[in-house]
Structure formats: structure tokens, C-alpha cells
Design a protein around this nucleic acid. Structure first.
Length: 585
RNA sequence: GGGCUCGUGGUGUAGAGGCCUAACAUGCCUCCCUGUCACGGAGGAGAUCGCCGGUUCGAAUCCGGUCGGGCCCGCCA
């Protein structure tokens, strides 16, 4: 007898066998129904008292017991068909029933839609994974990986595994360190990304490398950022001399994932290329969500002689006054506006000034500070109509962009402008090579130090270091950064110069990136590449807003695995072997 | 490291100074039930309200601290 899945239980009259879990049991005294569930579906079993042995066992079954049932598939009478389940027109009339394993009463319900706290779900993840939603998620993820692999292979990339035991890298995130037993006092580090290895593969003559690479970073988590480990679709192309080569090479894959894989609509077939500065000025973000407009409008010129002291002072101090027009926001209550004000303050704003346009009038505590002409100009510049509210930001350019950028996203969420079935893609390009580190009052790398400055070594000589642009690009999906890449710096001289601007000498560079610098001296081809954050992209494609939803066994927000209890204490003998002092007493 | 927020039977919630000897749903146990489909019916067990301290005649409820979760800032591509 063949074993069938519950979703395809054979034809009517056929004798079959199914295995699975008891999803629910309905005992009518003289007749027992059992819904058996496997990875495909649910099937109703009917146990009649005539099958005495099976009936006796059926009486003792409980939720999530593991069973094997055999019997004949029967069509249900018309009025007994259940259109709510896939197999609702048939049932298995049980002849034999076997208990494969019992289950204790469950801490969380597998067969119910009842909300369970995330903490509980992670503690009992193996039960959580039995739920159809999680089963679907894991299946889709495998399909997702398969899409990416086949695309990369079609484009003649080859997958190369790079070391997990690597070296600590001074730039970027905190490392996970692995003490070396054979070399006391020395440490491996788990790679934050295979960056250096993939560049060495380029020097090694690999024309096109890719890897679904595990990356490790010891930084605090967020809803869109896993603690500890995550995966990248990491790739690099030898002899690529412009970012556009990489962008046009990878774009079709992402579009295909959006449409064919996720079944969503692309906002635009053409993926816009937006320079970093333009993204900041128009959207107040280097990862703008383009599903909605609500662009930032610069009113500095219009309000330069404003009677509103707060604005005028900011402008004379070299700051800017910008605004966003929120459609229909006049319906917001006072307390709702207070909530947005708090958000603005959390981003560093002093407050949140606004003008409400209603019934041809302007209502606002600050309206009286503006002339008729100014109000008209504001209305014209922002496109405000009756029912809209214009919110202002006045401060240094960077801060205003940050505050209004955040508000833009919050307002869009509040007014439900983020259509979950639409995916807006964009490439943000031309990132600043250096940025000013306010805290330490020094120049620092904007993105990562391995990028080629646009214009090469001549550009580096520029007086204004902050004006140097890197040939660097991010892909943005609905406001999430899903990819970061660059044309790499493959020239040792340029590399030294790049670091020299930050005050690092050749010794430092040799010590930290010796292997790469050395390799570059032996005929390194130009190369460029990028890495997609596959977890985050998958989250958005699956319309989830928490990244732990789409990973089988994630750590919780504080980096703890509540199921496995890791991290955990280890034996002193293990520590001794690793030449580590015990801290237990 | 900081801000906001949550913590009540196994699970999910309600209760917001005395109506609490803590409610509801679900799960669990016992019994009844031959067409249910998250079956139904009757009964029952199960919580010192995260922990410590304070205010009060009286605290699940107010205050302080602490521990844990979530979101955010910092950090991170």
C-alpha cells in the first residue's frame, strides 16, 4: 500500500495510508473524526466503532499525536462536504490506526490562529514551524534560494565557499572572536562579509564569483536586522569597471523575484538611479520608499525674509527650512499630531511646526507670522490643497532631511500609502567617499574603504575631501536597503592614499589589509560587485515586517537563543585549552 | 549605553486603589454524545497578578528599583 500525502489522498475507493499529526479530534461518542495534518494539508479521518481496535485508539488520541492511518478513500455525501479545506470532498474511512508517537499537552497551539507571543514561539520554534504559515515560509525560502542560484549560474557565476574562520577586521561592525587553541592569545573572527576573500578571488583569476554567504556581526538587532548572523547573495565580477555593469547585470534577477517569485507588482519597470545627495534632499533618506511621493520641498528661498523668527534665524545661520505636504492630514487629531511631534523630537527636532489648509483658510498657531504672499508661495511650492497639512523642518540641512525623512515614512504608514503588493526599486548611487565624524571630530569612511573614488587618484587630491564621491551603489526596495556594492579599489597606491587622508600610514594598511594589498601588487584586474541582504529582501517580498518571521531559528532581540539556551557557560577545561581565564568566580 | 512600551492560570487577554475569595477565551482532566470539521453538552482542576521594596486601614492596580520581552536611538550595510 502506498503512503499518500493528505493533500493528494488518491482516488475514491482506493486503499491508502497516511501519516501525520492529529490536528484536531472530534469525538461523537459513537463516531470519531480526526483531522490528520502533514506538510501538505489536512485530511479528515472517520473512525467507526466497527473498526474496534482503531476506534479504541482513536478515543485516546490527543492534539499533535503522531499517527499512521489506513483505509479507503470515500466521497462525502454532498451536504457533508467542507469547502473550507482542500480535501473537504473526501475522507479516509479508517480500518487500521497506529500510534507512532505521543505528545504532551502543548505550550502553544499549532492548529490555532490565536496569537502567541514571539518569545513563546521562539522557545518552541519546532512547534511553531508546524504551522502552515511557517511551513509555507520555509518552502518559499528554498524556492527563493533556488531562483537566485539558477540565475547566477545562467550568468556564468561560480559559487566559491570562503572561510568561516577568518580574521578580525578593524573597520565596520564588532566581530565575533574565536580563540585559537593552537596559537594561544590569538583569535580568528567570523567574517562580517566575505569582502576580502572575494576580492582575492578576483586576483585569483575567477571571472565571476558568487556565494550565498553567511555573515556575522555582533551588533544590536532591529525589526529588519537579525542579531549575529545573516545571509548575503555575495558576488564580484572581474574586469567590471563601472557600477552600471553590476547594476544592469543584477537588476533582472531582482525584478524576476518581485514578479515571478513573489507575485507582486513593480512600481516602475525602469529602476531609477538616484544620486545620494538627491535622495537625501528629496526624500530625507538614503533608502527612500518610492511607493509614495510626499517629497521634501525646500522653502529656504521663499521664507528668507520671513517674519517668523525661528525660521529666519535658522536661515541666517546657514540652515534650511523644508517642508512636506501630507495629503488629508487635516483629519489628524491634536493628540495624533503630538505623536508625530514626539517622533520629530526623537530625531533631534526642536518641535514640529505646521500649517493646516482647510476651507480656503490657513489654520495654525504660526500662520500669523507669515505674509499672504508667503502663505501663497508655501501653498504653491508644496502643492497643498484644502484638507492638507504642511509640516516644517528648520535646522541644519542634514538634520532637517533626517527629521522630515522619518516623518515622511511615518505619515505614509499612518495614511496607509505603503501598498504591500507593490515593490518600488531604486539604485542610490554616488555615495560620499568620506564623511565627517561629529563625535570624534575627524574624517571617516562614508561606506567602506574598499571602494574606488570616482575619478580615481586625481579625485582624491581634491581640497574638499567631503566632496569626493565613491563609485558605490545601494539597491533600495520599499524603503529597505537590500544591496550594497561598489567598484573596488584594486590599486595599492590609491589604497594607501585613501587611508592616508584619515591619518593612517602604509604600515597600518599593510598590517590590517596586508594580504589584499600584496595581492593587488601582482596584476589585480579591476573588479566590482555587490551583496544583497537576502533575509531582508525575502522579508519584504513575503510582506513581513519582522525579519525573525522568515528565519527558521533566529536569536531573539537580545541575541539569545531561548530554545537552545545559547550563548551558554562552558567548562573550565575548555577554557584552559583555549588559554582563556575562567570568569566564573 | 539611552528612550518608549509590555509583563495576570499551560496559552492569549480583561481588570487600572476596596465590587478580586481575580474574569473571559482557549488548552487540560472526567462523564455524555453516530456526521462533525477550531463539533456540541455537563462538571472539574489550574494564578500568592515577573521579582524586591515603598505609599496606604487596604495594592494585580499607585511609586521606586530590578529582571525579562518588544520597538526605536546609538551601533550596524
Amino acid at each position: 500500500m502506498r503512503t499518500y500525502t493528505t493533500s493528494a489522498p488518491g482516488h475514491i475507493g482506493e486503499s491508502i495510508e497516511v501519516k501525520g499529526w492529529v490536528n484536531s479530534r472530534r469525538d461523537h461518542g459513537g463516531l470519531i473524526f480526526i483531522d490528520i495534518r502533514d506538510h501538505t494539508s489536512v485530511l479528515q479521518l472517520v473512525v467507526h466503532p466497527e473498526a474496534a481496535e482503531a476506534f479504541a485508539l482513536a478515543e485516546s488520541l490527543r492534539d499533535e499525536f503522531v499517527i499512521k492511518a489506513s483505509g479507503k478513500i470515500a466521497e462525502r455525501a454532498e451536504e457533508l462536504k467542507n469547502p473550507n479545506i482542500a480535501t473537504g470532498s473526501v475522507e479516509l474511512v479508517v480500518e487500521h490506526l497506529e500510534l507512532l508517537n505521543k505528545s504532551e499537552p502543548l505550550p502553544i497551539l499549532v492548529n490555532s490562529e490565536q496569537n502567541v507571543s514571539e518569545d513563546m514561539r521562539l522557545r518552541y520554534r519546532y512547534l511553531d514551524l508546524r504551522r502552515p504559515k511557517m511551513q509555507h515560509m520555509l518552502k518559499k525560502r528554498a524556492e527563493y534560494y533556488s531562483c537566485m542560484r539558477s540565475y547566477m549560474e545562467d550568468q556564468e557565476f561560480i559559487e566559491v565557499a570562503t572561510p568561516i574562520l577568518a580574521n578580525s577586521s578593524p573597520e565596520g561592525a564588532r566581530d565575533f572572536l574565536i580563540p585559537s587553541r593552537l596559537h594561544p592569545g590569538k583569535f580568528y573572527a567570523l567574517p562580517q562579509a566575505p569582502q576580502q576573500f572575494k576580492q582575492l578571488l578576483m586576483v585569483g583569476g575567477i571571472p565571476r564569483y558568487y556565494q550565498l554567504a553567511a555573515c556575522f556581526r555582533d551588533e544590536d538587532s532591529r525589526a529588519d536586522r537579525l542579531y549575529g548572523e545573516f545571509y548575503q547573495l555575495d558576488l564580484e565580477v572581474a574586469f567590471a569597471e563601472s557600477g552600471e555593469e553590476i547594476r544592469s547585470l543584477m537588476e533582472p534577477l531582482i525584478k524576476r523575484l518581485v514578479t515571478d517569485f513573489a507575485g507582486k507588482k513593480l512600481l516602475t519597470e525602469d529602476v531609477p538611479r538616484i544620486p545620494y545627495q538627491e535622495a537625501m534632499d528629496r526624500y530625507g533618506s538614503d533608502k527612500p520608499d518610492l511607493r509614495f511621493g510626499m517629497e521634501l520641498v525646500d522653502l529656504s528661498e521663499v521664507l528668507k525674509d520671513s517674519g517668523f523668527g525661528v525660521f529666519r534665524n535658522v536661515l541666517t545661520d546657514g540652515g534650511v527650512v523644508k517642508a512636506i505636504c501630507v495629503k488629508g492630514a487635516s483629519s489628524l487629531s491634536r493628540s495624533q499630531i503630538d505623536k508625530f511631534t514626539e517622533i520629530a523630537k526623537s530625531e533631534g527636532a526642536g518641535g514640529l511646526a505646521y500649517l493646516t489648509f482647510e476651507a480656503g483658510e490657513v489654520k495654525s498657531p504660526i500662520a500669523k507670522f507669515f505674509s499672504e504672499a508667503e502663505l501663497r508661495a508655501i501653498r504653491e511650492a508644496t502643492g497643498a490643497e484644502d484638507g492638507d497639512v504642511v509640516f516644517f523642518g528648520a535646522d541644519k540641512r542634514e538634520k532637517v532631511n533626517k527629521v522630515l525623512g522619518r516623518l515622511r515614512s511615518e505619515f505614509a504608514a499612518h495614511f496607509k500609502l505603503k501598498d504591500p503588493n507593490v515593490i518600488a526599486l531604486a539604485w542610490v548611487v554616488d555615495f560620499p567617499f568620506y564623511e565627517w565624524d561629529e563625535k570624534n571630530n575627524r574624517l571617516d569612511f562614508g561606506h567602506n574603504p574598499f571602494s574606488m573614488p570616482k575619478g580615481g587618484v586625481e579625485a582624491l587630491a581634491a581640497e574638499d575631501k567631503l566632496g569626493i564621491v565613491a563609485d558605490q551603489y545601494d539597491m533600495v526596495m520599499n524603503g529597505y536597503e537590500i544591496c550594497s556594492g561598489a567598484v573596488r579599489n584594486h590599486n595599492p597606491e590609491v589604497m594607501y592614499k585613501v587611508f592616508a587622508h584619515l591619518g593612517y600610514d602604509e604600515h597600518y594598511v599593510n598590517a590590517k589589509f596586508g594580504a589584499m594589498i600584496n595581492a593587488f601588487k601582482f596584476g589585480a584586474p579591476p573588479h566590482a560587485g555587490c551583496a544583497f541582504g537576502v533575509d531582508r529582501m525575502f522579508m519584504e517580498l513575503m510582506t513581513e515586517d519582522n525579519i525573525r518571521e522568515i528565519v527558521a531559528f533566529p536569536k531573539n532581540g537580545s541575541g539569545f537563543d531561548v530554545m537552545m539556551n545559547s550563548p551558554s557557560v562552558v567548562d573550565d577545561t575548555q577554557l584552559k585549552e583555549l588559554s582563556i581565564q575562567s570568569t566564573s568566580e
